[in-house]
Structure formats: C-alpha cells, structure tokens
Design a protein around this nucleic acid. Sequence first.
DNA 1: GACCTTATCGTCATAGTGACATTAATCGAC
DNA 2: GTCGATTAATGTCACTATGACGATAAGGTC
Lengths: 227, 227
Amino acid sequence: MSTARPPVAVTVDLVVLTVRDDRLQALTVRRGEEPFAGEWALPGGFLQPDEDLATAASRELLEETGLTSDHFHLEQLASYGDPHRDPRMRTVTVAYVALAADLPTPTAGSDAAEARWQPVADLAADDALAFDHATILRDGVERARAKLEYTPLAAAFCPPEFTVTELRRVYEVVWGVEIDPRNFHRKVTGTDGFLEPTGATTTRDGGRPARLYRVGAVRTLHPPLMR
Amino acid sequence: MSTARPPVAVTVDLVVLTVRDDRLQALTVRRGEEPFAGEWALPGGFLQPDEDLATAASRELLEETGLTSDHFHLEQLASYGDPHRDPRMRTVTVAYVALAADLPTPTAGSDAAEARWQPVADLAADDALAFDHATILRDGVERARAKLEYTPLAAAFCPPEFTVTELRRVYEVVWGVEIDPRNFHRKVTGTDGFLEPTGATTTRDGGRPARLYRVGAVRTLHPPLMR
DNA sequence: GACCTTATCGTCATAGTGACATTAATCGAC
DNA sequence: GTCGATTAATGTCACTATGACGATAAGGTC
C-alpha cells in the first residue's frame, strides 16, 4: 500500500432525470465560472468536511431543485477521476443518479445559477456538457434503463398514484421502444408486489377510467421486464 | 455549487474474489500500521497524482497479487466517504471488484504485507475487517452475485478453457445454491455467444470426457440465468 | 344515443424452465 | 478385456411466461 497522500478535491455531481413531454430529460445548469464558463454542466459541488457522500448528494439536490431528497430516488452511480478531467486541479467526482416525477417545479431551484431540463438525446455528444459530464450522463441514463428491467423503479418517474398506462409511458420513453399495452398490463399487474391498487380510478388520460396504483414493496422484479 | 475545497485523501480499495476449494474467497491483507494494526483489511492504497482511478486499481492489484490486471475482470464497485470511516483523516475510497480464476498464486504478492485468501462467509461480521471494509466486501460480493445473472462473468472465475460443470460449480458456490446439471447445461450451451467450444475435451473432473469451452463474445445474457 | 377513446380481460401459439430419465464415454479394479 | 463407478450429454414432459392480437368495458364528447 502506498502511503503518499496527494491533494485531491472531491466533488459530487448529479444526474437528475425526469420524464417531461414524453422525453427523458436531465437537469443541467449553466456554468458561471471558468473553466467551461457559459457552458451547460451537471449540477454538483464540493464535498463538505463533515458530510457523507449521500448527504452531499442530497444537499446538492436541494440546492439545485429546492426539493428535499425524499422527492427522488437517489443512488450512487460511479466515480470519475481522470487526472485531467478538471484543468484547474486534481479532482475526483462521485456521481449520483436522481430519478423524479415531473411534479418538481420545472427548473427553478434556490441556487442562483441558471438551470434547465434538457432532453438527454440532445446531450449525447461528448462536448454537449462541461468536463466529462456527457460521459457521466450517459452512464446515468444507462443505469436508469437497466434498473427499469429488474426493479420497480419506473414508478420513481410517476406521481405517487399512477395508472398502468402512465407507468408504461415511462418505460417507452426511457427505453425508446413501443410496448404492447395489453401485455404490459398483464405483466405489471401480475407481478406480485409491484403495484398496489388504491381503489380509486382516474380519467385524466381520457377514455375508460383507469385504476390508480401505488408502487408496492418489492425491490426487484422476478422475472424482470425485458427490453 | 459550493466552492469550498476541504482536504480529502482518496484511496482505492479492492475486493478481489476467487473460487477456491469450492468456496468464494476474498483476498485480505494484515495491516501493519495503526489504525487497526494487526487486523485484516481489503488491499488498497492512496490514489497517486497522475493516476486514473482504474489505473490505481490495476496498480494495487499488481502490488498485492503480483499479477497484471489482464488476469482479472476488474470493475468499479462504489465509493465510500463516511466522514469518520478513517479515524486519522477525512478519506474517500473508491472500491473496485476484481474477479479471478484460482490460477493466480495462492496469495504471495510482491508487497511485503501478509496476505491471505479468506472465505467471504467468514468475513460477514461488521468487525471482521478494518474500517468499513466488511460493508465494501458485502457490496462487492453482492455485485458479483448479481452480475452472474445477466452477464457471462462467471467465466472470470474459471481458467481460459473450462467445462460446463466447472462453470456450474462457480454459480453454485457464488450463489450458495444447487443447480440441476442438466438444465444448466441446456441453458448455457443454448445461450448464443455465451460459450465457444474449443473442440477439445478433458477428463480432469473424472467420468466421461467433457467438452472444453472458451467464453464467448456476448456481454449480457438474454434471457438471464436466475437465482 | 352514437361514437371516440382508453382500460381491461381473453386467446392462442411459442419460448423458456424445473424436474427427472436415459444414454454415452471415459477410468480404475479385477 | 469386462464390469462397475463416475460424470457428460441429450431428451421428455408439464408448466409458466411472453408476444401478437381480438374482444369487451366504461367513461367521455357531441
């Protein structure tokens, strides 16, 4: 084990995803300072002295969206530490993914910087975001896509009570595929613990009233839904 | 975004796993220094100034095992940054998981510290390892278990050429379950791209000669094997 | 009330899986 | 060389899950 201890700045960056206007969108902020001043970047900031990584992620989330972390599904994504990822200094960033329903206010957080939702499809180019944030975003999107397969996490993109069709739209948008409504309905209502009926119905999507569900207790889907 | 930049030491720790004696085992090293002097810990060390995270992981792996990283499947696991995880100072550690066939020399690396393979079942207690390493090990083992389901990664625990039975033993040991040999055989030989027959056979496991396979090109199994 | 829209349920063929039988090919003992 | 033990490989069958699609239900709108 090496004993040297070179100075490294640790940051926490966020891939905040939501489904808006039938597209998967990510929260971006415009940078005010060099480097990359004026360019779009993922929200994030430095890890504070007495803060756990998850705490820092929650704090940044609050600062950028004005919403506490219980409005989100928040999980660690990965860390990125290329020695030259930040021209100013040696940094290592721990990225988190946050999934949210569309409810959160369009974009305005308590933080001063300009913030905006942008479709992830528009941010695919390597230079679409500052630093290595395009890579981080790609990894975050891939994580979200993968997790929809074997967890009930699609519900994190929905309001607390939602219809089967609304849930299906999440899958279609995040995966970019069309799904047969009848087979999907059979699958999700038949998977034990995925959905709990509330007893209520809604006509907000038009047509015949649809049953409302809350997400159930299971953490993994057996068998998984597949892309 | 906060602009403060408190001093943090970044380390890289390794969960090195192998299947030995029909048990899943992890590489552990005995600590020479405080804190936790004399206790077992995961191998690891400080991130060096001009080193990427993956490079640091490879370097540590080489230092601890004497083997270059192409002997392993190496992937990032997660980062851990509880403010008090190291009593000496503020540290954030980026953990990697390395999977290896049993071939690597039992334990002796080029590094001076005493090193040993230990069954992961014996390291389950929170205080079985220094720092938060028991937690990291648990997460690493869980990662390995999960990846066997939907990737051909079980082959990383096997020599370059292996039999279906040897592969099955990996699944049985890592998952801690018994698997029907005939159904397993059907599944893995029928999954396109999982196994490539070498044309050769072996009798090293006794009985009728078994065909030898190399791992194929696919990176994910569709449909997955399930626990 | 006709009709549009969406929700929910049903049908059928096919693929995948668990449980288990059978046959095949080697080794070692005698 | 034959026999038996051992493990490999293939096969059978029932059941479950899934894809593709039809049919019916229950609200809205005009």
